[in-house]
Simulated assay, not measured.
Amino acid sequence: MGKNTNTLTTADKIAIGAAAADFLASFTANPIANGTGTILTTGANLASDISHGASFGQAAGNAAMNLGMGLIGFIPGLGTATKAKKLKKIL
C-alpha cells in the first residue's frame, strides 16, 4: 500500500483555523474583533504559506492582500462581500 496522503499537516490545520475564524468574524459588527481577527488570521495564513513552501515574497504579498481586504471590510456594506472573497481565496 502507498503512503496515506489524506492526513492534514499542521500548516493545513492552521489554514483551516484561519478560514474558520474569518468566517465567524463575518457575523460580528464589532470593529475591534474584526481588526484583531484580521491580524491573527493574516499571521496564521503567513505561517501556513511559508510552511507550504511559498517564498517569503509570495507569502508577504498574500499577507498584504489579506490585510487590505480586512481594511476594506470596515467599510459598511462591503464587509461581508470582502470576507466572502477572502474566504474563497483561502479555500
Rank of each mutant, 00 (worst) to 15 (best):
G2I: 08
K3S: 05
K3Y: 09
T5W: 05
T5E: 08
T5Q: 09
N6Y: 03
N6E: 14
N6V: 02
L8P: 06
T9Q: 12
T9K: 07
T9C: 04
T10H: 05
T10Q: 09
T10V: 07
T10K: 02
A11L: 01
A11C: 06
D12Y: 00
D12A: 07
K13I: 15
K13P: 04
I14H: 00
A15G: 13
I16P: 02
I16W: 00
I16Y: 00
I16H: 00
I16S: 04
G17Y: 00
G17P: 04
G17N: 03
G17M: 03
A18T: 05
A18H: 01
A21M: 15
D22L: 15
D22Q: 11
L24P: 00
L24I: 11
L24S: 01
S26A: 12
F27H: 05
F27M: 11
F27C: 07
A29C: 02
A29R: 00
N30V: 15
P31V: 15
P31Q: 10
I32K: 14
I32Y: 04
A33I: 15
N34H: 02
G35I: 09
G35A: 04
G35S: 07
T36Q: 07
T36W: 13
T36D: 01
G37V: 08
T38Q: 05
T38K: 02
T38D: 12
T38I: 15
T38M: 14
I39M: 11
L40Q: 03
L40T: 05
L40V: 14
T41D: 06
T41P: 03
G43C: 12
G43R: 00
G43E: 00
A44S: 06
A44E: 02
N45G: 12
N45C: 14
A47I: 08
A47C: 05
S48H: 06
D49M: 07
I50Q: 11
I50N: 05
S51P: 02
G53T: 03
A54W: 13
A54F: 15
A54I: 02
S55H: 08
S55Q: 09
S55D: 15
F56Y: 14
G57V: 07
G57L: 10
G57P: 09
A59M: 08
A59K: 02
A60V: 09
A60P: 06
G61Q: 06
G61H: 10
N62G: 11
N62D: 07
N62E: 06
N62P: 01
N62Q: 10
N62W: 03
A64D: 05
M65N: 13
M65Y: 04
N66K: 12
L67A: 05
G68S: 05
G68H: 08
M69L: 14
M69I: 15
G70I: 15
G70V: 10
G70A: 10
L71P: 02
L71V: 14
I72A: 06
I72L: 13
G73T: 09
G73I: 15
G73L: 15
I75L: 11
I75G: 07
P76H: 11
P76F: 10
G77A: 04
G77Q: 13
G77N: 12
L78Y: 10
L78N: 12
G79F: 06
T80H: 12
A81H: 06
A81S: 07
A81D: 03
K83Q: 09
K83N: 09
K85L: 13
K86F: 01
K86H: 02
K89G: 09
K89T: 07
I90F: 01
I90D: 11
I90Q: 09
I90C: 01
